[in-house]
Write a protein that binds this DNA or RNA. Structure first.
Lengths: 164, 164
DNA sequence: CTTGACTCTGTACACGACTACAGGGTTTAC
DNA sequence: GTAAACCCTGTAGTCGTGTACAGAGTCAAG
């Protein structure tokens, strides 16, 4: 998306091109409402304004938005991203924190994938079994009822919420 | 959980034991509010009531709840579960439908796991790279900025929501 | 000078699966 | 007989990540 915009490489001093919100939205692909939402949420800081109150972004906002999008894709929540940015702005390298978050994220991912492999296996087995013997007696559906749940039921709170 | 309750095996005729909501909740591990919520949502049907309006469940509700929980763990949404139950009660075997849903679910799972493997790889690589060369210049965090996003950006709507 | 596109603020809604509470009535144990 | 523990209905809130409006002001083109 931003590739098409052709930002004149690193011609820093050239023209500090002020972007109105609609332009920033189109160039970043982020959506006007989302931009304002990010600002409210403290991810963007307040931009300059025209006399009449219109937001005027510098092109830096595009980098910031790209950063946010990448971090999101990597599984960071907006809160985590906010913290990272805040730490950075407080001078300390956020990378210690980021590294920690990344490690946690990796562990979660592994656990999650382990679960999913298990689900997949159960589902596939149930499906195969069901297909070669048709439906059984008067139950709702053997396909589901037959399936045993192996995952340790350490989650006391009912079915685990799958966020994200 | 239900194992402790010891339901006297298949002593069908014995005593049709009516359960008040708190009992049903404890025996099923489902939570009173959730039981009422399921009823409102059409997953349970209305139970008998005492004169004073208390819900009186039969033990069958425990099977139904176990069914719901298993289906949830297998990745079915409450809406899908409702449909399955409804079809069943309309006489037609829901298994055709279930089978379809399961197939879809399997495909989704595979796709999702593929994505996750990719994320994992990216994260782990970025982490390793970062650890051996420390943080770079003045950016927010090389660890994230460096990471390239490979997933086709066919998702126009900003970052894909990861439900479930 | 008007029309239409743009922007502003503030609030409400969306989703999924519940959870919490208020303000009652009922049952049970001592 | 009274207090604790239970149950009822109905409404509202939670989490995260935005969308969608309403009602108003601003800007550029014709």
């Amino acid at each position: 998306m931003r590739n098409q915009v052709k930002r004149e490489a690193a011609t820093k001093e050239a023209r500090p091109a002020r972007l109105k919100i609609g332009e920033a939205s189109k160039m970043s692909g982020v959506g006007i409402e989302a931009l304002r939402f990010y600002e409210r949420s403290g991810l963007l800081g307040r931009p300059a304004r025209t006399e009449s109150g219109y937001r005027l972004y510098t092109e830096e906002v595009l980098d910031r938005l790209a950063f946010i999008k990448r971090a999101q894709v990597l599984g960071f929540s907006l809160d985590e991203i906010k913290q990272i940015i805040a730490e950075r702005e407080a001078g300390q390298s956020p990378c210690v924190h980021v590294r920690e978050v990344v490690r946690r994220r990796l562990a979660e991912l592994d656990e999650r994938m382990r679960e999913m492999r298990l689900y997949r296996k159960e589902l596939a087995e149930a499906l195969a079994e069901w297909e070669q013997q048709g439906d059984a007696e008067g139950h709702i559906c053997g396909l589901i009822e037959k399936t045993e749940i192996h995952h340790a039921d350490t989650r006391t709170q009912g079915v685990a919420r799958r966020k994200r």
